[in-house]
Amino acid sequence: MRIKLKSNIAVSDNGFVFDPATGDSYSVNPIGVDIIRWMKTYDTEAEVINQIIETYDIDSKTVEKDLYDFLNLLQNYQLAENA
């Protein structure tokens, strides 16, 4: 994966994301929770995209666009970094 979630980022079932290095916390929706967890599980963006398509009724083009938007957001908040 080109963009990696920082290893110590924690996410709870109800979408509370905590960055223990800065003390900042965020809220994500259920799809955000899934993506953050899959980012920890899978090695490539393609695998995450496939998993989203399998789980949600959505086309790959939309997923790809939205995923990269989300990853950029994670990077802006310093929750993820370039691998």
Partner: peptide, 21 residues
């Protein structure tokens, strides 16, 4: 280590959280 989460108008921490940094 701690990060202030809420600061009074005197600049004092009114809430804070321990960090792993």
């Amino acid at each position: 280590p701690m990060r202030k989460k809420f600061i009074t108008d005197k600049g004092k921490a009114w809430a804070g959280v321990t960090l792993d940094e």
